[in-house]
Nucleic acid binder design. Structure first.
Lengths: 147, 147
DNA sequence: CTTATAAAAGATATTTTAGTCTTTTATATA
DNA sequence: TATATAAAAGACTAAAATATCTTTTATAAG
């Protein structure tokens, strides 16, 4: 459903939300190591996200990527809008064009509630809220160091 | 989540389950037209499925693909096992290797029940049961002719 | 002002998925 | 037995996704 690019991007932004600040920046290299994702690939994605103000960046020594307060007001859909082409949630699970409540595919009744729940989260929960929830729930962005 | 190949294959098998029999076979061409999917692509997939007895086929005039009674005892997973490489439901939605109940990614609690429901259906419901449900529910395998 | 650092930009390579085309083989039927 | 039909098989092409490599630009710090 999500491309690797989106998965990497989401995890990176949430990592920055949890760990970075205006004076605690992270280079692409650190992020790649921390999340165990390809360096050059995530570098490109972070640059894209910085260009559209989903995250912030600064060049040079002590430079890197970080989330400023205004960045944290964004939601996951802002990431997907930049990385993915077209609505990730639109295509039917079975490949039926125009599948919907009126013309449901054979698994529509299972898939639709799932998509709704996820869309609700990605569209209406801010990155900062999402990040806080992650900390509270103890869910993970990386399994580095966990056997 | 599913490749186009799997989507085409599942819809084709369900189409055959609903419409075909030992003496009512469908050529790849008809199936492609009926489901609005690429002819040569689905032809290959149907051949693959016939080879592993998920469906049946016969060559020559009045030949084609069909589901014999024993074919209908299969389930959707049998299709996926043949078409997909590796378990479709295993990879984590966020890309975390080893994501699970113990080490959940940030959307695991939303994704896991969905996967369970779908896996239950694909693994424990036979093609014939699935096909009957589709007829009862009035769900669709194609939107050909529907505006 | 020089240097080291790290993002920005852009070109290239690789892999996977998707889709097409051609030839061969089996078979029902006329 | 000749012919038309349709699956089987295999080679090939195209597009998208994934990933890497190189060069340029900005900037903090010595």
């Amino acid at each position: 459903m999500l491309s690797n690019a989106s998965k990497y991007a989401i995890r990176s932004v949430l990592f920055l939300a949890e760990n970075s600040s205006k004076n605690k920046k992270y280079g692409a290299k650190i992020i790649a190591e921390e999340l165990e994702i390809p360096l050059h690939f995530i570098a490109k994605l972070l640059q894209q996200l910085a260009r559209v103000n989903v995250i912030s960046s600064s060049k040079g020594p002590h430079g890197g990527f970080y989330t400023a307060k205004k960045n944290l007001q964004n939601n996951v859909c802002a990431i997907l809008d930049e990385i993915e082409s077209g609505n990730v949630f639109e295509p039917c699970f079975m490949g039926l064009p125009q599948c919907g409540d009126e013309n449901p595919c054979p698994v529509h009744h299972i898939v639709a509630p799932f998509k709704d729940a996820l869309l609700e989260k990605f569209k209406h929960q801010s990155i900062s809220e999402f990040s806080r929830e992650i900390k509270e729930d103890g869910s993970l962005l990386s399994l580095k160091g966990i056997d």
